[in-house]
Design a protein around this nucleic acid. Structure first.
Lengths: 204, 204
DNA sequence: TTTATTGTACCAACTAGTCTGTTTAAAATT
DNA sequence: AATTTTAAACAGACTAGTTGGTACAATAAA
């Protein structure tokens, strides 16, 4: 039954993600995507019914990978469950290491879409919120584990502390892109780690 | 000689800034701007030679206001120069107060432009970097003042600590837009304030 | 053969930008 | 003070190119 279209589909996804980071979504034309991929219009519209279907597929894939990274980092730190603070710090360290490996400023589709929200349907935008809320839940769990044996030196709202990680990711991406300094992202995650380190103190 | 064009020019700037936040820059058509302002094409292109001239004017105005806010906050805290840490914390508090007053998620043109960089010329993008670096310089000064009487509990790089404020602004804007929670921005500035509070300890 | 893919010509709507002309208000002249 | 001049400010029809999307023929594997 016909040939295998998945390489084509993947090429479209990969190249258009890149293009969206360079030009924004509405600044990226389908013709540009065709040129970059060497694919024709027929093939494109076979795989994606509309340009917005591509937008949705892009965010879907990006969100899946994002949550996958998060879960991988959770797994890698499972052995530290004994000291929940150690684990939390190692969890952040995983992403510091990840960001050190990259060789150009990292970009995030959430921010990209968020700054031209009218281009997308509710469902697409909800997918972004949903993923950020998944991060929130995960971080809340990690933090609450810490709070079993630690107090906070300053009174803090746990939910917003949980969100703070995503905030620093997003902010660091923007600034590192604007200043063209790929190392900035890791630096700011280190500050987040510092904050976690400083805010908790062992219960007596 | 002729009528006064500044109200028209200002209306164009105000409405197109709003449109850029909703649709992105390349997602905003000149026709849309005309519709929103009730102005005609002739008037638009009288005030701005090209669409990119508008982009530049927008970022110019935004940057000027941004630096103005920064300097206002500096002025308002001058009386606290005696204790540099107090001053730093009050400086951040100024922006917390500012963000509490707003009644919808705040948006930043720096992030908007940064996520479709190919739409703009070098000069426009440089204006963004320049402004962020002005923030860096200001924060470095505030922090170095603190360091005269305080040590840091954890070894930190001053430059990246200085940048951290902008990072948290930008990240908080993105997340508060994505989650449609206008209060989030202030919350995360509070975390920044906490961080500053925790990281410094009086020299003996 | 059949069905999943891909190629290409085409279209209506929209894009940024131009062109020519009109209005307006202040300054120069009477 | 009334009139004319001047240039800034605006109006809106027009254009050449681009946009997302369609129709349908061609091709390739099962």
């Amino acid at each position: 039954m016909g040939r295998d279209g998945t390489p084509t589909r993947n090429k479209i996804l990969a190249e258009s993600k890149q293009l969206v980071f360079e030009n924004g979504f509405s600044g990226t034309s389908i013709d540009q995507i065709l040129e970059r991929t060497g694919i024709t219009k027929g093939a494109f519209f076979y795989h994606f019914k509309t340009k917005n279907a591509l937008a949705k597929a892009l965010i879907e894939e990006f969100a899946r990978e994002d949550i996958h990274h998060m879960n991988e980092a959770l797994k890698k730190t499972e052995d530290l469950k004994g000291d929940a603070l150690d684990r939390l710090l190692r969890f952040i360290q995983e992403f510091i290491d990840m960001m050190c490996e990259v060789d150009e400023p990292y970009s995030c589709l959430y921010a990209s879409y968020t700054y031209e929200p009218n281009q997308f349907d509710e469902e697409t935008l909800n997918r972004i919120a949903e993923t950020i809320l998944t991060w929130r839940t995960t971080m809340e769990k990690l933090i609450n584990d810490v709070l079993k044996k630690y107090d906070t030196k300053i009174e803090v709202d746990i939910q917003s502390l949980a969100d703070h990680t995503v905030v620093i990711f997003e902010g660091a991406f923007v600034v590192s892109k604007a200043l063209k300094g790929k190392d900035l992202t890791a630096d700011h995650l280190r500050h987040l780690k510092n904050y976690f380190e400083l805010i908790f103190e062992k219960k007596k």
